[in-house]
Structure formats: structure tokens, C-alpha cells
């Protein structure tokens, strides 16, 4: 493999039912920064059916070229057709690097593509930097968030990485940006299509995406019970915030998994994160420490959450929630 032949930062644009997912725009924002630094280009790979009209929005969000693969085989995601399409692009165009959202879709597609292309894939990066030779250095948590590891893919291309939603920043859409839209045709080997999608069922609970909330009111063990969560709900309403929680509260059944913050839940970066009665285990901190403002309330003055909090209050979380809600309502 001649590394010099590989050029461009390629971003997989995840769409669901024709709706481009925020994570794709966040990846474009990051790719744009990297490309400007490397003097390289950003390519958006938009796969689906009847989706070409969205290509322009990807240019506004940072792409230099949008590769549109419009095919009925790609109308809904299943592993094999998408893998075939991406791998044909890799063979044809020789991307230097490729970014994919670390969603249930991206984490299904990424490893299949990397295995077929015989290259390296770094999962769930939280930071992407450029090394001395222009290579990508991707940093990710390991051992349940206890350790950070920076991974390099030295001799294989494309250098692939997945990034969780909410970790990177999309650029402000600029309608004046110009770029090219290219229709790309894929020759599918349909004999390998062996998984049949019967139906997609949406459940109401998952409609809330805490990664998009500007303010999160988050609760842990110190909130205690259902009553405590009801109080949090009240405060969240007053602040137009969403409620989230630590793993302990999810395991106890007070709140759904889709609202869990942390290594095994979601990574969030709101403007304001309230941590009520959350001790701050590393697994939790890994999911929220990048929040702009962190206010923590805990009875235990030695709780590790205070090490990441901008403002820490030693006290009873339930009392504080009650009083704070009253004061704000006035």
C-alpha cells in the first residue's frame, strides 16, 4: 500500500428515513478543521434512496464534495449493501481517512467495512488530532473510561474512526460555501444480501435525545426515589431542561436507559449540567465532563464529582432542588 495515494477525509453521512443525523454534521465540522490544517478536502458520502436533494446542506456544513449514492438497495440500512457501497468508494477513491458516527448503525457498519478493507478502526473517539507526519491520532476512553488511549493507524488506509454523537461540534451552516455534488453508482452483489429487514418499530421513550439538550438536570443515588425524580422533573420544566441520570438510577428502574449519561450511556456536552446526588464515578464523569458549566450537589464533601464541578455545593440534593425550583418559579 502506497500511503501517498490516499487522500481526503471522508465522512459517512448517516440518515434515517431521509433525515440527516446531527452526528454527521458534527463529523463534517471536525473533518473541515482537520482538512484545513492538512490542506486536504472533505468528502461527504451520502447513501440512501431519494436523498440527493440534501446534498447542498452538506456543503454548507463543511463538505467540498458530496458523493451521492442513490439506490433502492440503500433505502433502509442493512449491513451488507452499505458495506459494499462504502468499500467500492474506498477502492475507487482511496480515502486517507474516514469518520463514521458511533451510533448503533455506525458501530455495525464501521467494523464490517474496516475488516473488508483490511484497515484499522478506532471506536468512539473523543478527540482527533494530527500527528507529526500528518497522520490522525484518535483518542478514546478505555477500561470503562478509567484510561485514555491515543490510537494511530500508521501503515493502513483509510484511517477509520467512529465518534459518538454530541462529542464534536458542527460548524455554523454557511449557505455561501461552494462544492461539488457527484452521483456515484455502485455495482451491488445482491447474492450477498442475506439479512431481511421486516420492520422498524419506534418507541416513544427514545424520542428524547439528551445529547441535544442545552441544560441537563441529572440525578444519582442521592436523589433516592421516584419522589426525588419528580422534583427533578419540576426543576427541569422550570429551566426548560431535560432530565438525565447516572447508571445507578437507570439500573434501579427510575428512568430509561436512553437518559443515562456516562461510558455505557450517552456523552453529553450541554451548556449547563446539574449533578444532583451523583458521586461522580469515572464512568459517569467520562460522559459529562466536557459540559460548559457543571454544578454538583452532594452530601459527601469528598465525592469525586466535585473534582470536575465548576460549582460544588455540599448539601442535601433534594432540599436544594425543592428550594431552587421555588425560587426560580418566582
Amino acid at each position: 500500500m502506497n500511503l501517498e495515494d490516499y487522500k481526503g477525509i471522508y465522512v459517512f453521512i448517516e440518515q434515517r428515513e431521509g433525515v440527516i443525523q446531527n452526528v454527521a454534521l458534527e463529523l463534517l465540522g471536525q473533518a473541515r478543521k482537520l482538512a484545513d490544517e492538512l490542506n486536504d478536502k472533505v468528502y461527504a458520502m451520502l447513501l440512501g434512496h431519494n436523498i440527493a436533494d440534501q446534498a447542498q446542506s452538506l456543503i454548507a456544513s463543511g463538505a467540498d464534495e458530496v458523493i451521492v449514492v442513490d439506490a433502492p438497495e440503500l433505502a433502509e440500512y442493512t449491513t451488507e449493501p452499505y458495506t459494499q457501497a462504502i468499500c467500492q468508494i474506498i477502492e475507487d477513491r482511496k480515502p486517507e481517512s474516514m469518520l463514521i458516527g458511533a451510533t448503533t448503525l455506525g458501530r455495525d457498519l464501521g467494523p464490517r467495512v474496516s475488516a473488508r478493507a483490511a484497515t484499522g478502526l478506532t471506536a468512539d473517539c473523543t478527540k482527533i488530532e494530527i500527528g507529526k507526519k500528518g497522520e490522525l491520532l484518535m483518542t478514546r476512553p478505555a477500561f470503562g473510561g478509567n484510561l485514555m488511549a491515543t490510537i494511530a493507524c500508521k501503515n493502513h488506509r483509510p484511517q477509520m474512526g467512529t465518534v459518538r454523537p454530541g462529542v464534536l461540534f458542527a460548524m455554523d451552516a454557511d449557505e455561501n460555501r461552494t462544492g461539488e455534488v457527484v452521483n456515484y453508482e455502485v455495482k451491488f452483489n445482491t447474492a450477498k444480501f442475506k439479512v431481511k429487514l421486516l420492520e422498524t418499530v419506534k418507541e416513544d421513550t427514545d424520542l428524547i435525545d439528551i445529547t441535544e439538550a442545552r441544560i441537563l438536570v441529572s440525578g444519582g443515588r442521592g436523589i433516592g426515589n421516584e419522589e426525588g425524580f419528580k422534583a427533578m422533573d419540576g426543576l427541569a420544566q422550570t429551566l426548560e431542561a431535560e432530565v438525565s441520570a447516572s447508571r445507578a438510577m437507570v439500573d434501579a428502574g427510575y428512568i430509561g436507559h436512553e437518559r443515562q449519561v456516562g461510558q455505557t450511556g450517552k456523552t453529553v456536552r450541554p451548556d449547563l449540567y446539574f449533578a444532583f446526588g451523583i458521586s461522580g464515578a469515572i464512568q459517569h464523569v467520562a460522559g459529562m465532563e466536557e459540559s460548559d458549566l457543571i454544578i454538583a450537589v452532594n452530601k459527601d464533601k469528598d465525592a469525586p464529582i466535585f473534582q470536575v464541578a465548576d460549582l460544588g455545593i455540599v448539601g442535601d440534593a433534594k432540599q436544594i432542588i425543592k428550594k431552587l425550583t421555588e425560587r426560580l418559579e418566582k
Partner: peptide
């Protein structure tokens, strides 16, 4: 194809202000 370039403990930012006061004052 991948190798660990470096591994390090998560760097925590300096702790902010901490108050141990009555509820009203805390609010």
C-alpha cells in the same frame, strides 16, 4: 493496523468552588 500511540490517565480540570452552607444560601 492500529497501535497505541500513548495511554494516559484522564486529566481532570482544576476543581471549581466548593461551598458547605445552609440550603437558602446555597440556592
Amino acid at each position: 493496523p492500529t497501535s497505541v500511540h500513548k495511554a494516559f490517565a484522564r486529566g481532570l480540570k482544576p476543581a471549581g468552588e466548593l461551598y458547605e452552607v445552609e440550603t437558602d444560601e446555597a440556592v
